[in-house]
């Protein structure tokens, strides 16, 4: 009886202010969507339109003088498939290694009773700022005989301090301390508690880290450029960069290269590269998304 009364009141109350709120959310989300979506659409149409017209600002909402030169240039290059395969290897192996190293470390650093944690944290954070520079790092990698190996492309940045901090913050704030105390009473060690309780409860942050690390490996161009010179090991981004440069009109004006050189299509490659390199990794997102949806979904359904 009283329960329904409360419920009615709340429904009544919500129907007025909440409706405005819901409308505001809807309008804002539509606006944001449009602002984000238009330039993305632009990339798509620019990748199939005459580049001269794109440069002149004549291509606005629909593609003009459609041609698929950009995609042809990319997809007919045999190296691209090798690049995809390499990248997938680096993403899968690299991300797995990242997670195996990051999550336990994040857990250890989240234990408030672990007195050394501030010191260890400083040990990590310091390296976000001070680095010996590229050359000493290169020489270290070289001393380990890892230059131009696949290993270095998997191992490099095995742990990212930024991600470590995110994971630690998450574990610390969303897993109640009572659980640990209860687990200790049950005779759990840190290992078992971590495996049995922390990991299952951290699905959301694990998904985020997987996404962060996977995208990092996917996009990684710089480390592959510096630490690998073997064409066979080249990841997708390196291959795409080569194709892109190959197709770009060359500004030095030393005579020749620009000569009648596919000007009307050259820039297509620039846009097509974005699409070719992004589509596969975009497909990963929905799978990951559902893990950090769940909690919210339950809340929403109940409300």
């Amino acid at each position: 009886m009283t329960k329904t009364a409360v419920k009615n009141r709340s429904v009544k109350c919500s129907s007025w202010s909440d409706r405005i709120f819901g409308a505001a959310v809807m309008i804002l989300s539509i606006m944001i969507f449009l602002i984000i979506a238009y330039p993305l659409w632009f990339v798509v149409i620019a990748s199939i339109s005459n580049s001269n017209l794109v440069n002149l600002g004549k291509v606005t909402f629909w593609p003009k003088d459609i041609r698929f030169y950009g995609y042809e240039q990319i997809l007919q290059d045999a190296r691209i498939w090798k690049g995809y395969a390499n990248t997938i290897l680096y993403v899968v192996a690299g991300t797995a290694l990242n997670m195996v190293i990051t999550m336990p470390a994040a857990y250890a650093l989240s234990r408030k009773d672990f007195k050394a944690r501030n010191g260890v944290m400083f040990y990590f954070v310091f390296t976000m700022f001070f680095s010996g520079g590229l050359v000493p790092t290169y020489m270290t990698v070289s001393a380990l005989h890892l230059i131009s190996t696949r290993t270095i492309l998997v191992v490099f940045v095995a742990i990212n301090t930024y991600n470590l901090i995110i994971a630690r913050t998450f574990i610390q704030n969303s897993i109640p301390d009572d659980l640990y105390e209860a687990a200790v009473l049950d005779g759990c060690s840190h290992f078992t508690y971590f495996m049995k309780v922390v990991l299952p409860l951290s699905k959301a942050v694990i998904s985020v880290l997987i996404l962060y690390y996977a995208v990092f490996h996917w996009n990684d161009y710089f480390n592959a450029l510096i630490y690998n010179s073997k064409q066979d090991n080249a990841p997708l981004q390196i291959v795409l960069r080569d194709i892109l440069l190959l197709n770009q009109a060359f500004a030095s004006g030393n005579g020749g290269v620009q000569g009648g050189y596919g000007q009307s299509s050259a820039d297509q490659v620039k846009y097509a590269v974005i699409i070719v390199s992004t589509l596969p990794i975009l497909c990963v997102y929905p799978f990951i998304q559902k893990y950090f949806e769940k909690g919210v979904m339950i809340g929403a359904v109940k409300g």
Binding site: S131, P136, Y162, F216, F222
Partner: peptide, 18 residues
Amino acid sequence: FLSVILSAAMLAGTLAGC
């Protein structure tokens, strides 16, 4: 997310060469 890496990249121009 890429800050560490990028700052390392930045330093390529600055700290590089040791």
